[in-house]
Design a protein around this nucleic acid. Structure first.
Lengths: 218, 218
DNA sequence: CGATGGTGAGTGAGTGTTCACCCACCTGTC
DNA sequence: GACAGGTGGGTGAACACTCACTCACCATCG
């Protein structure tokens, strides 16, 4: 219980904050391994090395633990994409879009087990939605569309393209890919969904988006 | 076993089959309204107008009810897309792709609440995955890719396009769109996700996929 | 024909288990 | 000694599922 930064060294987390962090880590780990429905208060407490009652010294209820995990432990996808418009004109469009894919797929993969629990329970979903003022899931594609619009004005993206539709295509592909990775975790047509294939996926997907699919004469 | 329509006359479903159908309808309705976690055996029985025990005369356990709902009540998206390759060369590519969008989005929208419950519970997911021999979710995009390949051989789709990546883009957009519709059901930026907008979405998305996004000189 | 027994559908009243959550109490630190 | 942080033990509620039983129906047979 006495804690100098002996073990972590970098982070001088004191008792209370340390326990809080351990609870969030435990919850995140359990959600990823055994799923949201088996991530019970008893399991979280055991994994965090404290009692069930201790959870309620730091969080109002179980739902708040999950909300905090989603907000404090998830990669900041929306924020990363929101910075893209500023980079318009630098590097290549292809590089930026591939970077989005490489960030977005793991983010969605990690978020799916938790989001799944929300989709299965409209009341949880409504509660969570209210807390996501400007970080809602639709902002990812809309920020990406903003970036494409900026590149359009710079002439690096064709003028007759609908930025919203193009952004939806790319983000949707990442979203679907992440779903398939979770769905076939460990089994199924795994060779296509192994993490090492992410770079290939990013390359092929961005290439398809950038290219024309319609034959010249058709 | 003997089944004349003596009582109903109009309804070919007699006692046992009727109850079974009512249970599946009730379960599907509850999943869509109160969510999977609140779709308890008690609620299903009440909604179906029978006792809880009666459920177990027709289904081994609760999980089997959900599996049957998913298999017998959901639109057959994979089957519909699987027929596409035969239609290569007929009509226009645009028409076929827009038709896919119009079918896929409602399908995914309806499936999300149930799939969400699966994602939140790896054991349910594994059980369900085993029963989906050739109807797994990755078949949708792979069948669509087959169709694009067929059109490619007919010269109606550019030869240098990766059919798998293009299919993933379109299906992914539908998948993501359906997710957003469920997530923002009733609230949020609803104007963009109203059902009436589905045709516009299909048109814009397919147009973006068919067009080139990269400027000629870049 | 009418008694007998088998059968599938259905039920009310439970079963054991698991869950989120909480109370009374302890303990180290300012 | 006040108090934040932490605990063991418990609580009522909800859950999926079961049990012993009823009832309607039907085939068989004395």
């Amino acid at each position: 219980m006495t804690n100098e930064g002996t073990r972590e060294g970098v982070e001088p987390l004191t008792g209370a904050a340390l326990t809080r962090a351990r609870v969030l880590d435990a919850a995140a780990r359990l959600i990823g391994t055994v799923g949201l429905v088996r991530a019970t208060t008893k399991q979280i407490a055991r994994e965090a090395g404290c009692s069930e009652a201790a959870l309620y010294k730091h969080f109002r209820d179980k739902e708040e633990i999950f909300v905090r995990v989603l907000r404090e432990r998830a990669p900041r996808l929306a924020a990363a994409v929101a910075e893209l418009p500023e980079r318009a004109g630098q590097g290549t469009v292809r590089e930026h879009l591939e970077a989005v894919v490489v960030v977005a797929v793991p983010f969605y993969r990690q978020s799916f087990p938790m989001a799944g629990g929300l989709l299965a329970s409209p009341e949880l979903l409504a509660a969570h939605r209210r807390k996501l003022d400007k970080a809602g899931p639709h902002h990812v594609s809309s920020h990406l569309a903003d970036y494409l619009r900026a590149e359009q004005q710079l002439g690096r993206v064709a003028a007759d393209v609908d930025p919203d539709a193009a952004a939806m295509l790319l983000i949707g592909a990442c979203f679907h890919r992440a779903f398939l990775e979770v769905f076939y975790a460990g089994e199924g047509p795994a060779e296509a969904f192994r993490p090492a294939a992410l770079d290939e996926f990013a390359h092929a997907t961005v290439r398809a988006l950038l290219g024309a699919i319609q034959a010249p004469e058709a």
